[in-house]
Design a protein around this nucleic acid. Structure first.
Lengths: 124, 124
DNA sequence: GTAGCACTTAGAGTTTACTCTAAGTCAAGG
DNA sequence: CCTTGACTTAGAGTAAACTCTAAGTGCTAC
């Protein structure tokens, strides 16, 4: 699977995919003999995981550390679990903040709906 | 109310408060005769609004445009409503993404809980 | 076999949102 | 009065995550 296909499938630019690999977030991707990237199943699953985590705002640094632990084997399972648990709590906290903001927005929009109605009545 | 108090009350640094004012996100704040900022009630309410919206990731550019519209009077109510509605939808979409990621994290954590248990049993 | 498009790298540039620095002014306590 | 700590400005610097550029290589279609 070439980079353009992975790019399209996960909505990450080819530049971004190469960038992730260059900085060590995505471990070295499989290559064809010519040197062109040919993402295998494991590569693609990693991209999918990264895409998912990044879309929720988890920092590249944390994900890099996590994936490095996965590569180091089963001894690192407690450390990995700790990372995921921490990130899970941070994410839940961010969502909580966002829910409050969503509520504020909904209240303000409702007020504007009324204001617009009032204005419309004024204009008639 | 001086800048340090506003800073503490809303968890924004004094630098950030001055920055918001400098770039035109926060309209010019009330000043004491000496030139020192003395946030009045309206200033503080604006800070609270900005803090709330920023904490959910709404871009400064959008908030600046919105607050400028508020300053321009009631004629801008439909435009303001449109901004808030759009941002509300974008925020809801981000939260949706995050919920999916949260679910993935929870599944992975559950798997690790089992793995850790298994390892513990292995070690006994 | 050559045009043209996708691929490669290294490295520079961009965006967003701060955050810090330097040099100076103000206000309260001793 | 003078020190000390909070305040002021303009402008430079930083962090995170891309995104673009240039120069070159590989694959496919005519």
């Amino acid at each position: 699977m070439k980079i353009a296909e992975v790019s399209q499938r996960y909505g990450l630019s080819s530049d971004t995919l190469r960038y992730y690999e260059r900085i060590g977030l995505l471990p070295p991707v499989n290559r064809a003999e010519s040197g062109i990237r040919d993402y295998n199943d494991l590569d693609v699953r990693r991209v999918e995981f990264i895409k998912c985590m990044r879309s929720a705002g988890l920092p590249i640094e944390v994900l890099t550390a996590y994936i490095a632990l996965v590569q180091r084997g089963d001894d690192t399972i407690p450390a990995r679990k700790a990372i995921l648990k921490e990130q899970r709590e941070l994410l839940a906290a961010r969502m909580n903040e966002m829910q409050k903001t969503l509520d504020v927005l909904d209240r303000k929009i409702a007020i504007y709906e009324n204001a617009v109605l009032t204005r419309e009545q004024d204009l008639l």
